[in-house]
């Protein structure tokens, strides 16, 4: 038996394979709910209601999906370039922290000015962290996996120091590791009057489209993909690999930072030690499920945002453990990775 690469799998075949993965995923979800002892029918209804059963649920699902989509996109661009960074986690925090500092510097200015400057500061924060990883890689040959992982710790502890020291909330509340509440005027504006559907959702969609075009249609996207396929060949062609690594890591940092500023300025309205935790790592899973494609990441992010909100409803209404969503996420990841392999390869008898 031999494994053969399919030449240009058809759209029909792709839909069939991923559709089958989704169906099997649903069946396995039902099995997991059964094992948890909760009523399957009521749980699935609750899951559906939480995911998309009302405008408020849809808004909540989309808001939860937004940071996942952004960190997923940050993963797409690096992994397509063959840069296996895990620094999305710290880039999210760097973006949020830079934006927070900017909000302190600009307090008193017109809200629109403050918000714009905060978003720009966030982008700069994420870009700086991405650039640092790129510099370690190109200047010292340090694997981006190692440097980005270590930077995650450094940024995490720096944040812990900031929110328990210079930025700690004061007055009205007992000392606690968190900033004060952001002034309402500086919150990211909502795009609809339902839930916390802030403007970051729109920014995420713009980034999806931009990254899709970049990777598919633009020379830089070609270079990024080419580096992922064969970096040596790309160098032989005369492309400056150092510049490309820097560009990719900066793009990744900027996108991840958008997730951070969106969460803090659009949802929680204060920085704590844990409200950004896990977003970067979740984004890696989302991007892999989305096949490292921006559009696929959008779909996967929306799916898991809805799943997250639905699982909360399941827990509150029928008592299904929320930890089940992590298990479902794992199952779906495996199924979609299998589907991806089935889509691209076939087995042939020798």
């Amino acid at each position: 038996m031999r494994i053969i690469t399919r030449s240009g799998p058809s759209v029909t075949w792709s839909i069939a394979v991923y559709g089958a993965a989704a169906v099997v995923g649903l069946l396995m979800t039902i099995v997991l709910i059964s094992i948890s002892g909760a009523p399957v029918g009521a749980s699935l209804v609750a899951l559906g209601q939480g995911a998309a059963g009302s405008p408020a649920s849809i808004a909540s699902s989309v808001v939860k999906a937004t940071p996942l989509i952004l960190t997923g996109l940050a993963t797409c661009v690096t992994y397509r370039a063959g840069l296996w960074t895990v620094g999305q986690e710290s880039q999210v925090v760097a973006g949020a922290a830079a934006a927070w500092q900017m909000s302190l510097w600009t307090t008193g200015m017109a809200p629109v000015v403050v918000i714009v400057l905060c978003v720009l500061a966030a982008l700069a924060g994420g870009a700086a962290l991405g650039a640092l990883v790129a510099w370690f890689r190109t200047r010292f040959g340090i694997s981006e996996i190692v440097s980005s992982m270590m930077l995650n710790y450094i940024v995490f502890f720096a944040l812990a120091w900031l929110i328990s020291g210079p930025w700690m909330a004061s007055g009205g509340t007992a000392s606690y590791q968190q900033t004060g509440l952001l002034e309402r005027a500086y919150w990211l504006p909502n795009i609809v009057d339902v839930g916390k559907m802030h403007i970051g959702v729109v920014l995420a969609l713009i980034v999806v489209i931009w990254l899709q075009v970049l990777l598919k249609r633009m020379p830089l996207g070609y270079e990024i993909r080419a580096m992922g396929f064969n970096a040596t060949a790309l160098s032989q062609r005369g492309v400056d690999k150092r510049r490309l690594v820097l560009t990719v890591m900066v793009i990744s940092g900027v996108i991840a930072a958008l997730a951070g500023v969106g969460e803090v300025f659009g949802v929680s309205h204060r920085l704590t030690g844990d409200n950004l935790s896990g977003m970067g790592f979740d984004g890696i899973i989302i991007a892999l499920i989305g096949g490292l494609s921006p559009l696929g990441t959008l779909v996967a992010g929306l799916f898991f945002g809805a799943l997250h909100n639905g699982s909360l409803f399941m827990n509150v209404i029928t008592g299904v453990p929320t930890a089940l969503v992590t298990a479902i996420q794992g199952v779906v990841l495996i199924l979609f990775l299998i589907a991806g392999a089935v889509r691209r390869y076939r087995i042939e008898r020798a």
Binding site: K196, D274, N275, L312, V316, T322
Partner: peptide, 12 residues
């Protein structure tokens, strides 16, 4: 409830 944090708390 299960352990909840952040925006999930408000929803619950």
């Amino acid at each position: 409830s299960d352990p909840l944090w952040g925006n999930d708390v408000e929803s619950a």
